[in-house]
Simulated scan of single mutants.
Amino acid sequence: MSEAITVSVRPDSVAVLTFDQPGSKANVLTRELWAEFGNALAALDRRTDVKGLVLASAKPGIFIAGADLKLLANAPGPNDPEVRAFIELGLRVLEQLEALPFPTCAVIDGAALGGGLEVALACDYRVCGTNSKVQLGLPEVKLGLIPGWGGTQRLPRVLDMNRMHHASDLLTTGKNLNYQEATAYQLADVVVESSILVEPAAYHVLRIDRKERRAWKLQPLPKNNWKAFKPNHNVAGAAAEAVRVMIEGAALPLYDAIKLETEAFMRLAGSDESKRLIAEFFASRKK
């Protein structure tokens, strides 16, 4: 089987892991891609010559488009063991990414949506290109779902000082941000010309304090960030669940918070509402 991931190490000791799923216009997070990603990270973890990691995509206009929706569309109902195994596989790989002994950076020059953005959120640093196709978002609510790979918890931990408000807005509307908006929200750390993306990403990844960034992300958010936050009570369904999990998780260490997210996701995945919306999404793409 053709490999979807290649890894090279630059002279400055920065590894570049490139996603390029064969036979597909987009990189999609299937079980196979998650497994290959995890194996690649395990191999990098064992290397003593690597000082930083850059995640990139060879697909024009796309970083990672999101999860394999076919598996979710075919779930017989909520709390399906196969769906849980799929979600937990991705969570384990992102924990691997977050535990690497060197800093990490996602290079985004196109769509980083749903699970694609969740991969980027698990990195220590995010660089956006100037491509007009750059979109960062968590559109799961449009499919009757919430993010399942830590998005409800990592998102508010990396955003600007209006983190709860901005995270709530993104989670409940499913809207996408361009590179200017992503930078304003501090979802992207820096914007560089698309033609030179990897070079500045490698420069920055060698100079960031991964320990400080991870310590902030792994611990509960300060009480003043979430205690007084008033959610919009006009939202319902998956949107309301996303905000509830976000707020409750803010008071917990990251991986405990993600467990709340997983259980909420499992109640929604495979529901009649979610399967109907996923079917409508597939139908709209055929038109």
Results as ranks from 00 to 15, higher is better:
M1K: 11
E3R: 12
A4D: 04
A4Q: 00
T6P: 01
V14W: 04
A15D: 08
F19N: 00
G23M: 05
S24F: 06
A26L: 11
T30I: 08
R31L: 11
E32S: 15
E32Q: 15
L33M: 12
A35F: 02
A35V: 06
A35G: 01
A40F: 04
A43N: 11
R46T: 12
D49R: 05
D49L: 08
L55Q: 07
G61E: 08
F63G: 08
I64Y: 00
G66Q: 07
L69Y: 14
L69T: 03
K70F: 08
K70Q: 14
N74W: 03
A75F: 04
G77F: 02
G77D: 03
D80F: 07
E82R: 11
R84V: 10
A85V: 08
G90Y: 05
R92W: 09
E95H: 08
Q96R: 14
E98I: 00
A99K: 13
P101Q: 11
P101I: 09
T104H: 06
T104Q: 07
T104L: 06
C105I: 13
A106L: 09
I108A: 10
I108S: 09
I108V: 15
L113P: 00
G114D: 12
G115C: 06
G115R: 01
G116E: 07
L117M: 13
L117K: 06
A120S: 13
Y125N: 02
R126P: 02
V127W: 00
G129E: 02
V134H: 04
P139M: 10
V141P: 03
I146W: 03
P147W: 08
W149D: 05
G150E: 08
G151S: 10
L155V: 05
V158G: 00
L159K: 12
N162Y: 05
D169H: 14
L170S: 06
L171A: 06
T172L: 01
T173L: 09
K175F: 10
N176Q: 13
N176C: 09
L177S: 13
N178H: 09
N178L: 04
Q180M: 07
V190Y: 02
V191T: 13
V192N: 01
S194P: 03
S195M: 10
S195P: 01
S195A: 14
L197D: 01
L197M: 15
Y203G: 01
V205S: 11
L206H: 08
R207T: 13
R207E: 13
K211I: 05
K211L: 09
K211V: 08
A215E: 13
A215F: 06
W216N: 07
L221S: 08
P222M: 09
K223F: 07
K223Q: 15
K223L: 12
W226D: 08
K230H: 07
P231Q: 05
P231W: 01
P231C: 06
N232R: 10
A236M: 01
A236H: 09
A236E: 12
A238E: 03
V243P: 02
V245Q: 05
M246P: 04
I247G: 03
A250W: 01
A251E: 12
P253R: 12
P253V: 12
D256C: 03
E261L: 11
F265K: 03
S274V: 05
R276A: 14
L277Q: 15
F282S: 04
R285H: 11
K287P: 00
